[in-house]
Design a protein around this nucleic acid. Structure first.
Lengths: 233, 233
DNA sequence: GGCGTGTGAGTAATCACTCACCTTGACCAA
DNA sequence: TTGGTCAAGGTGAGTGATTACTCACACGCC
């Protein structure tokens, strides 16, 4: 067999894409360079022409994965408000609950890499957490304070960012429980699951019932149909 | 080198204990039978006298790990009430936040096995979720209803058990983020972290502020000093 | 003496990784 | 045009190390 001749950069990207699939599904130790080469439809030798070692290939995937999601860019511009807060949580919940839908399961791969990192040295997770914090932290805390000032939320402890991470933990683990082919958990009334998650989180971060129902019910106005997905892993 | 002569059952247990450590730390693919034998201080040959294959050894560890925690037994007898609900959440949070403290990191190993299962076929996680649900589900839902009846909580959707899993997700992921030697996340004001988690969850499941503060503040009366740890993985 | 506990040197397969060689196309002097 | 050169893309049969697993044999105890 002989592959088509192509530029080095394109070949690199194809290898990275194939390797990402393998590593996400089988972990680092569970992935063989042979299987990566097969997934990229090239010889094993060519793989090592592009990457000096299996570890270097893995490291490059993790580094590449640290790029931010374009989806959440539009949230940064939003003015801090209760509505922004609800939209942010809604976007986060929606993103994590539809994580297996995307093409090539890219987001599911990211979730897998994120999870395995916690079992490893945690460095990749640390980088991703830091990036997410940089991107969303200020909007979140400002929106919380704005909601408190507007009377929509009760003042919580002096660390509002912790609340964001609690919310993140909830949806990430919920997504993880739905990751296997046959889900680990079957939530009762799954059709309403996203709404239940949003309510749980919004109550948890201090919003009162009135604010939650009012902002969660009539919502289809600002973005008609378009997904408001947010968040990276 | 020659090990001491001992009964087959005891040797089996020693191997299982050593293997559990290895699998939890390095995963299935990352663990070699040689390293397990070394950790159990026996020859590799003897290992295969007790277990027909590496996979069988792993399967037996997962099955063994499905046993319930003795810690949470005393919660089953409790009468459903707001206080029981708060105590349950407190115990769950306390258990997960001190998961790395135990001897031999047994609970941390369980968390690792639970997490890797989600990335695998999820069967082990499914079994454990089912067992936890059997043990705690009824007490939780009954206590929720009791709290609603007492005016301590607002009525949430028709699936109260979902709320329990949301709470479980939050603390499990929080524990996972603290698992690596250098934590993935550094929560602000970590000393108060457990209380913040409890508040987040109790608010999330519908308890009102008055009930939370009253039950969360004065609490050292029923169980003096004794740990109220609950929950398995 | 025979049975169960234990060993350590094996085995075939697989691992990450290398190397000699092939092919292709761009460039350039005659 | 021709034809020769040379670098870059690409291959597949290797390399030694490591893998899961086996087997012939040794010890001690009834």
């Amino acid at each position: 067999m002989s592959s088509l001749r192509m530029t080095s950069d394109l070949r690199r990207q194809l290898i990275l894409s194939a390797a990402k699939r393998c590593f996400a599904r089988n972990g680092f130790a569970g992935t063989t360079t042979k299987s990566v080469a097969a997934a990229a439809a090239i010889s094993e030798g060519l793989l090592f022409k592009h990457f000096p070692s299996k570890a270097a290939l893995y490291a490059e995937i993790l580094a590449e994965e640290c790029e931010a999601d374009p989806d959440l860019a539009h949230l940064l511009g939003q003015a801090p408000s209760t509505a922004t807060l609800v939209e942010l949580i809604k976007g986060m919940v929606g993103h994590f609950m539809h994580i297996s839908d995307g093409p090539g399961e890219e987001e599911a791969q990211r979730l897998r890499l994120m999870t395995t990192s916690h079992l490893d040295d945690g460095e990749f997770a640390r980088l991703l957490y830091a990036k997410v914090s940089d991107l969303i932290g200020s909007v979140f805390t400002a929106s919380i304070e704005s909601a408190v000032a507007a009377g929509d939320a009760s003042k919580i402890g002096k660390e509002p960012l912790n609340l964001f991470w609690f919310a993140h933990h909830t949806v990430l683990m919920a997504a993880l429980s739905q990751l296997p082919a046959v889900p680990c958990l079957t939530y009762g009334d799954a059709a309403d699951l996203e709404r239940q998650l949003c309510q749980f989180i919004l109550r948890g971060i201090g919003l009162n019932e009135a604010a939650i129902t009012s902002h969660l019910d009539c919502e289809l106005s600002p973005n008609s149909g378009q997904s408001v997905t947010a968040e990276s892993a």
